[in-house]
Each structure stands twice: as C-alpha cells, then as structure tokens.
Amino acid sequence: MRRLIGFACEGETLAATLDEAPGTTGLLIVSGGNEIRSGAHRGMAMLAQRLAATGAPVFRYDRRGVGDSTGDNGGFLSAEPDLIAAAAEFRNAAPHVTRLVGFGNCDAASTLALFGRSAGFDKVILANPWVIEPIDELPPAAAIRHHYSTALRDPATWRRALSGNLDMTSFIKGLLRIARTGEESRNPLASRVLTAIAAWQTNAAVILARGDATAIAFAAAAGAAVPSETIDTDSHSFTGPAAAALETALRRNLA
C-alpha cells in the first residue's frame, strides 16, 4: 500500500510517500537537485513500488521548498535537518524497520554522505556523488577530458574540423577547462564529501554511470581511494536499460 505523509521540519511541513512492506530493512530515497520525490519520469516512484512489492518498505520525501513541501529551498548543503526529520518519520511510520539504508543520486548522494550518520542511517548508497563547485557554464574538466579523448579518436571529428564545421571557440574553452582538472578535484567540497564517504568505511556503496559528467568528475576526484560499481550508461538518472541495473545494485545492497 502507498501512503502519503506530512511531517514537520523546522517549522515547515515536508511531504513524503511511504510504500509499505513487511521487511525490516527500509530504503529512504533522497531526491537530488530540485527534483521532486517521484523522480525523473516517475522513476523513483516506480522503483519504490517494485521494491515494496518484494518486501522492502520505501520512503521518499520532498525537502523544504521542493515539490509539495513548504519553506525555502536552501540547496543540498542545508538539507541536514530535512534528512534527519525524514529518517525519524520513516521510523515512526514503519516501526518494524530495524535497519535503515539511504539512497541518493547527484547532490542527494552528497547529502547522505555528509549528514546520513547524523540521521542514523546504517548504510548509504551513493549514485554519482556531486563534488564540483561550479566555475562557469561548462561541464567539469574531467568530463570534458573524457569527451575529448573519445572525440579525437573519431575520424568524424577531424572531418568536421577540416570542413569548418567544428566550433573552435567551444573547443578551445574545453581545452582550457581540462587544464583545471587538478584544481577542480582539490576543491573544498570534493575533499569534504570524500572524507565523509571514507568515514562510512564499508557502509557506503558508490554507483557511477560510466558516461555521466558528474560521475566522471567524482571518479577523477576520488581516484582509487573510493571503490565503486559502474553501470554502463550515459544517463545521469539511470533511465532506460540502466534502470534495471540500478535496481539490481540497490537490491544487492539492501540484502
């Protein structure tokens, strides 16, 4: 059964959805960016329904200022109270849950890494954690490097350049951004998130979308220090065929 819930957070009311199930391990899904709790193309709502059908209760919520929740949206770094309140409400609404696992994508993954211990999570599953402090409108340097290394091996790129159909201004901007890869990977946010992940030890699982710019930037910042599982997709939100691979990874980490 799917149940709608409202609960308090620092004087505001947060909206949540609980897909009920008898299992004692519960999954709390944190939405990334300004995304509402149903997820892109209702992906998180459908995922929650499938997981609950096989025994795992799933709780989703909108943080302050997003979706059906009141208040101001202060971004993921101000979402610790929201996360703590959501975890407490999940336990209240499903008192049989004895093990709490969190899942988030993009900056929601960073929220869980940073604040999940304060909220009492037993484990966190982090997809494409956000570790970049934006410099301009261009993608992260590591993602541009990945794109260029692929494009420069493609004869079509050279044909476009010789015919004048390659945007040289954008190409040069990309090259200049590549030179800043080290600067990006050493930014304070990356250091903070990577330190937080390390503190979880074996209770944090990282999942990366192979061709996603955010995932590529995380991999560049983390190096070999953070073990991760890679799903072969360019989709940041694991849509299409990647949805099944993500669900398999979640089920494995819930077991």
Rank of each mutant, 00 (worst) to 15 (best):
S163I: 00
L175G: 14
V131Q: 08
H236M: 05
S170R: 13
G174T: 11
R180L: 15
A93E: 11
Y148E: 08
D154L: 00
I29D: 03
G120R: 09
S118P: 03
A209C: 02
G164Q: 02
A85Y: 06
R210L: 14
R145P: 01
M168D: 03
L126T: 04
A190H: 02
L246G: 03
D107Q: 02
L250N: 06
P140I: 06
P57L: 07
L114Q: 02
M44V: 09
A21I: 03
S163R: 00
G33C: 10
R177F: 06
P188M: 01
S110H: 02
F238V: 01
R91L: 04
E229P: 05
A88Q: 15
L27I: 01
T13I: 11
R37F: 10
F121K: 02
G43V: 11
H146S: 14
E10N: 12
G43R: 11
A127M: 07
I197M: 02
G23W: 05
I197E: 01
A243I: 11
G65P: 07
A16M: 10
I207A: 04
S38M: 09
E133S: 13
A56F: 15
P22K: 12
A109Y: 08
L114M: 13
R210E: 15
A141P: 03
A21T: 09
A222L: 07
I197C: 03
A199R: 14
G55Y: 07
I197Y: 03
A56L: 15
W130Q: 15
A94C: 07
A21P: 04
A85E: 13
L51P: 05
T157S: 07
A86N: 05
L162I: 08
G75M: 12
R160H: 11
G116C: 10
S118Q: 13
A141E: 01
K173Y: 11
F103H: 12
N165L: 09
R63D: 12
G75A: 04
T157C: 06
L254I: 09
D107G: 05
R64V: 00
F7D: 00
L100N: 12
S163L: 02
M46F: 11
A16N: 08
I29S: 05
A127S: 11
L138Y: 06
R63P: 15
R160K: 14
V206C: 00
G182P: 01
P139A: 14
A93Q: 15
A222R: 10
A143D: 12
E80M: 11
R91D: 02
E133M: 14
V66M: 09
R180A: 11
V101I: 12
A108N: 09
A127Y: 09
V58I: 08
P155F: 05
A217Q: 00
T239H: 10
Y148S: 03
K173S: 10
L246N: 07
R210D: 14
T70R: 07
A113W: 00
L77N: 09
T248L: 06
E247A: 05
N105D: 10
G43Y: 06
L14C: 01
G6F: 07
A179F: 06
A204Y: 04
L100W: 09
E35I: 14
E133K: 10
